[in-house]
Design a protein around this nucleic acid. Structure first.
Lengths: 348, 348
DNA sequence: TTTAGCACTCACTTGATAAGAGTGCTAACA
DNA sequence: TGTTAGCACTCTTATCAAGTGAGTGCTAAA
């Protein structure tokens, strides 16, 4: 059934008002505040219809009306107007997210922090899934007599390194050889292929000294690759939640913290969300604990390919227009910063 | 004035009971529960004396007694017994903190997470202050036509790297030369000296191509060093706080989150604490917001020299014995993992 | 010095009452 | 037939009074 013009107007007023006031809104207040040329009684009739259709609910008989998840969905899809981010906010965002030092982790952390500041909600971000990231080269560098640094560079421009302590001394020649052999073998393969497809074992050697070297290095190499594959979750602005009326009740606040505390599960939820700007409202979320929350996420790109996510979580009553615009603007900025330019002609 | 044996016994019973129950304890309950051979009336007299001396307080006339900060201090200094960490906990700790991959950040993060799990409090950790860390060598490595990786290795074994995008192409020879010149100039100097004492400008060059290279690299080098000097703060277990009766009141919980939310200030507080195991109770803390909290920190060492900190924050009513033991055991473990062995004979 | 007894205090609970906001229904009106 | 005014009804919230129980402080006796 279609909603009449008037019903839409009333619904929009209720949603907008409730988002800013957090108080159930009654017919009398509505007619006074929004001056829509009809009496409270008429509004009551319309409200009653809207309630039958599932757009409004009633905390108890003598309270005003509150929008349902369905109403928020309608609002987000049809009624909501585009929010223009103030110039100064835009400036702050680009300033903080544009660095010439290419440190993804740092930038993402900043992004999460900034996002929660701007929206007054709890924010989060995950680093890209690296499974399809391809290896570019591997380098072992001498540090001192018994330690070397393992450095792995991927096609997306990500560099990771670890110090490895050896039990026996090594020669520089062996180290160089190993770097070259491994690079030759693994270059262009995805990280997960290297780990799963047993490619690993190919780098063993006949030469005695080399074989000893490989032996100590192998487990370190594997665990470093595994670390690299882990998707990192950053969160910020949790304290903001306690300024929101919905979470004045300590029990509700605890539920909220529970969601976030199970980092592993929460990360999985984020990974499995579709790409692009995605809004899920209340019971649209599959996870029980999140039935009272809304989640907004958007994706950013690294090297135009790898995909990470940035978003907020909060009560279903939130500024969908504002939050959506800000998140989208931020992810665009991040993607811009990390679109690797070079890469046409490789070194070597 | 010295406390009689009996007063000490009563005080100890009150502190211990209050720590586990969080309820003010009355004379009658005390005499029944702890069976100390004297009547409630006698206990009342002693309690009254203890209150005059400042060891106990009174939420209101008809409530039981509650230990003051002074009582906790006495308890921590004299009455508290050494807590023996269960074997299984010890095992979990060493297992999680001993890695052969030397990633300090990761280990510290795990430590904070584990610590909050074991104590049910909020935990935190800061990475070592790197100011006195000395540079060991600098390496520029080619990645592709327009990007190079800058790698800095310090004496403590810390390795950091960033990808730098250049505007113009470079030659491998120039890069090698630059690596060598910079290493030669800066080796053995502390990071803060390099940044502050204007040593930076020494690495300019007469040769045209080199000079262009140096120009783009210089700001990146500086900002990388600055990043390295930043002390990182990790926190975990914030949600634990909400299971503690003291923070059932949403207002109190907010104060607590405020402390932690001002990461910069909080980091400074931690940096300025003395080394070793330090316990500050309630109003012993200089910061107003922390007057209701106790802080326990201990220091860990990297390379036997650089000092980072690990600790918990919670209400003044906490298991000082247990928490202290656990933190100390953990920092010992971390120090053990990061005592760099080699270093006698440098590479080169 | 210790203890029993007793009056007193204060927080907390329960129940009753009143006020306020809002609904739903009915009947009148355009 | 849609709109509106009026009114009874419902439900929450605030307030107040009375009763209860845990605990103290003081006094006097053992």
């Amino acid at each position: 059934m279609d909603l009449s013009e008037r019903k839409l107007k009333i619904l929009q007023a209720i949603v907008a008002d409730f988002i800013s006031s957090a108080e159930p809104i009654g017919s009398r207040t509505l007619s006074k505040k929004y001056d829509m040329g009809i009496s409270p009684a008429t509004i009551r009739n319309e409200m009653s219809d809207l309630e039958d259709m599932g757009y409004l609910t009633h905390p108890h008989t003598s309270a005003g009306r509150v929008p349902s998840d369905k109403a928020y969905r309608l609002y987000v899809n049809n009624l909501m107007q585009k929010y223009e981010i103030p110039e100064e906010d835009k400036q702050i965002i680009s300033e903080k997210l544009t660095t010439n030092v290419m440190e993804l982790e740092r930038t993402i952390k900043h992004a999460a922090s900034l996002l929660s500041d701007l929206t007054n909600l709890a924010s989060f971000a995950i680093t890209p899934n690296q499974e399809s990231n391809k290896l570019k080269h591997i380098n072992f560098l001498p540090v001192d007599k018994y330690s070397v640094v393992l450095m792995i560079v991927t096609e997306s421009g990500r560099v990771i390194n670890t110090t490895i302590k050896l039990k026996t001394a090594y020669t520089e020649e062996n180290l160089n050889l190993l770097s070259r052999v491994m690079t030759y073998n693994y270059k262009g393969k995805t990280l997960s292929d290297i780990l799963t497809l047993d490619i690993i074992k190919t780098f063993e050697s006949d030469i005695e000294a080399m074989s000893r070297l490989v032996e100590t290095i192998k487990p370190n190499f594997i665990s470093t690759l595994e670390n690299m594959l882990d998707v990192e979750l950053y969160m910020d602005g949790l304290a903001n939640i306690f300024s929101i009326p919905e979470y004045n009740d300590i029990e509700k606040a605890k539920v909220f913290l529970d969601i976030i505390n199970q980092r592993k599960q929460f990360t999985d939820v984020l990974i499995n969300r579709e790409n692009g700007v995605i809004i899920t409202i209340g019971n649209e979320n599959k996870e029980d604990l999140m039935r009272d929350c809304s989640l907004i996420t958007a994706t950013y790109h690294v090297n135009g390919k790898l995909v990470g996510k940035l978003g907020v979580i909060g009560p279903t009553r939130m500024r969908y227009d504002e939050v959506t615009s800000i998140i989208e603007y931020m992810t665009d900025n991040i993607s811009e910063t990390f679109k690797v330019t070079g890469g046409d002609k490789d070194y070597e």
